[in-house]
Simulated scan of single mutants.
Amino acid sequence: METRDLKVAGAWEGTPKKIGDDRGLFLEWFKEPAFVRAAGHTLNLAQANCSVSAAGVLRGIHFADVPPGQAKYVTCVKGAVLDVVVDIRVGSPTFGAWDSVLLDDKDRRAIYLPEGLGHAFLSLEDDSTVVYLCSSGYAPEREHGINPLDPEIGIEWPTTSRAGSALEFTLSEKDSSAPSLSEARDSGQLPRYGEVREWIDGATRRQKSVSMSDVKEFGV
Rank of each mutant, 00 (worst) to 15 (best):
A46F: 04
A46W: 04
A46L: 07
A46R: 13
Q47E: 14
Q47T: 01
Q47N: 05
Q47W: 03
A48E: 14
A48M: 15
N49T: 04
N49I: 04
C50T: 14
S51I: 01
V52R: 11
V52E: 12
V52Y: 04
S53G: 12
A54P: 09
A54S: 14
A55N: 05
A55L: 01
A55Y: 05
A55K: 08
A55D: 03
A55P: 10
G56R: 05
G56I: 00
V57S: 08
L58C: 06
L58N: 03
L58Y: 02
L58E: 00
R59V: 08
R59K: 12
R59S: 04
G60I: 06
G60K: 02
G60L: 05
G60C: 11
I61Q: 03
H62S: 04
F63S: 07
F63R: 04
D65R: 12
P67R: 05
P67L: 14
P68I: 14
P68H: 13
G69F: 10
Q70I: 08
A71T: 09
K72R: 13
Y73H: 13
Y73C: 11
Y73F: 15
Y73K: 09
V74R: 09
V74G: 07
T75D: 15
T75L: 14
T75H: 13
C76D: 04
C76F: 01
C76A: 10
V77N: 10
K78N: 15
G79R: 00
G79N: 06
G79C: 09
A80L: 13
D83S: 06
D83I: 04
V84L: 04
V84Q: 02
V85N: 05
V85P: 02
V85C: 11
V86D: 11
D87F: 08
D87R: 01
I88M: 09
R89H: 12
V90G: 11
V90Y: 10
V90D: 14
G91D: 13
S92K: 11
P93Y: 06
P93R: 06
P93A: 07
T94M: 02
T94C: 02
F95V: 01
G96A: 05
A97Y: 06
W98G: 00
D99V: 00
S100T: 08
V101A: 06
V101K: 00
L102M: 09
D104E: 12
D104P: 03
D104F: 00
D105L: 01
K106T: 15
K106S: 12
K106A: 15
D107W: 01
R108T: 13
R108M: 15
R108N: 15
R109H: 10
R109F: 01
A110F: 06
A110W: 02
I111P: 03
I111R: 04
Y112A: 07
Y112E: 11
Y112N: 09
Y112G: 03
L113T: 13
P114E: 10
P114D: 12
P114H: 05
P114Y: 03
E115D: 12
L117C: 11
L117F: 05
L117V: 11
G118A: 03
G118K: 00
G118Y: 03
G118E: 10
A120I: 07
F121D: 07
F121P: 09
F121Q: 06
L122D: 02
S123C: 13
E125G: 12
D127C: 13
S128V: 07
T129R: 08
V130G: 05
V131H: 10
Y132H: 06
Y132P: 06
Y132T: 02
L133Y: 12
L133V: 14
C134V: 10
C134E: 15
C134Q: 15
